[in-house]
């Protein structure tokens, strides 16, 4: 076992899948010689050559459109969007084709495609480098959306995404790309897409988060637990779509209280969907309204003001307390 950060862990997953299956190809802007602007594909070009690690011309729609073709013809493309903010060119290829070729052909044509994209804020970068638009992709039936939060689950989920028979948008929380290291087993580890994970058990409140928000959420949970005699159950969503209602519903049935943390703007976010599912299944078990800590419905601020808007541990802690005190 080696202690890896998220960048290295995804790199390990890509490397191992490429070694194992020669239908896996990597493509995108600067993913080859440069190893990707975040170095996620570092070393793969040298190891597997330019036919399997393709530095493409600068055109996102082209990258995904051709990836769909490759996938239809039996390859397993893993395409990189340099930043999620530049992925909107691909929306028509996803909505118009990748998401629906399976259903359109009643299962005869499939698109086993992975689209990796760093997303989220907190990196003092230029405009379009800080958005969280997972809900935008999660709204497409036929597309899976996965968001890892740690080196270990990032590795296990990228492997699952590559082996998945359908298009998977793999959104990488760049704020925590190198924030911490974790033991990642050298031997194969695969997580199931479509499952959330209880990362801390508790009985008084359910706290749901994903991606880079896991860390402030966990910090807030610890603070509250230190301050009062409560225990908080923390769920890492991991798969955004198709969502694992079961884990959340069961937890809320037990705790009766729930706070959801979302880096994205408030309206029509993933938190809204979680609240709807809780209402569908366990409304009568609730002891307090389900609470959410989200960004605001403003255009993502440039980084000078960004942190005033992003949910932080202090705000999460206050909302947990409000919900406990209800």
């Amino acid at each position: 076992m080696a202690k890896l950060n998220i960048v290295q862990a995804i790199n390990l997953g890509l490397d191992q899948e490429m070694a194992k299956d020669d239908s896996v190809v990597v493509l995108g802007e600067d993913v080859g010689v440069d190893g990707g602007v975040f170095r996620v594909t570092d070393g793969l070009h040298a190891k597997y050559g330019e036919e399997r690690v393709i530095d493409t011309p600068l055109a996102e729609s082209g990258i995904i459109g051709t990836s769909i073709g490759m996938a239809l013809a039996g390859l397993r493309p893993v395409a990189e969007m340099q930043f999620s903010g530049f992925s909107y060119h691909i929306f028509h290829q996803l909505e118009g084709h990748a998401s629906r070729l399976r259903q359109r052909s009643l299962g005869q044509r499939t698109v086993p495609l992975v689209v990796r994209m760093p997303f989220g804020g907190g990196v003092r970068a230029l405009e379009h480098h800080s958005e969280s638009r997972e809900a935008t992709y999660a709204h497409l039936p036929g597309v899976k959306v996965v968001i890892p939060s740690s080196p270990r689950n990032a590795r296990a989920l990228i492997v699952a995404a590559i082996r998945d028979p359908d298009p998977v948008i793999f959104m990488e929380p760049k704020h925590v790309y190198r924030a911490f290291r974790e033991e990642v087993p050298e031997t194969e580890e695969v997580m199931e897409i479509g499952r959330s994970e209880i990362v801390q058990e508790g009985s008084d409140l359910t706290l749901v988060a994903w991606g880079a928000m896991m860390r402030p959420a966990l910090r807030a949970a610890v603070e509250v637990q230190n301050a009062r005699k409560v225990s908080i159950e923390v769920i890492d969503l991991l798969t955004i779509a198709p969502m694992d209602s079961h884990t959340i519903v069961e937890s809320v049935q037990k705790t009766g209280r729930c706070v959801i943390v979302q880096e994205a703007p408030k309206t029509l976010g993933i938190a809204s969907e979680i609240i709807a599912r809780i209402n569908d299944h366990v409304l009568l078990y609730l002891e307090a309204p389900v609470n959410r800590v989200t960004n605001y419905d403003v255009v993502t601020p440039y980084f000078g003001r960004e942190l005033d808007f992003t949910p932080d541990a202090g705000r999460i802690q206050r909302e947990i307390e409000t919900t406990l005190d209800f």
Partner: peptide, 11 residues
């Protein structure tokens, strides 16, 4: 250049 991509690989 476009980041690491030389003009010759662009088109």
């Amino acid at each position: 250049w476009a980041i690491s991509m030389p003009r010759s690989k662009q088109t």
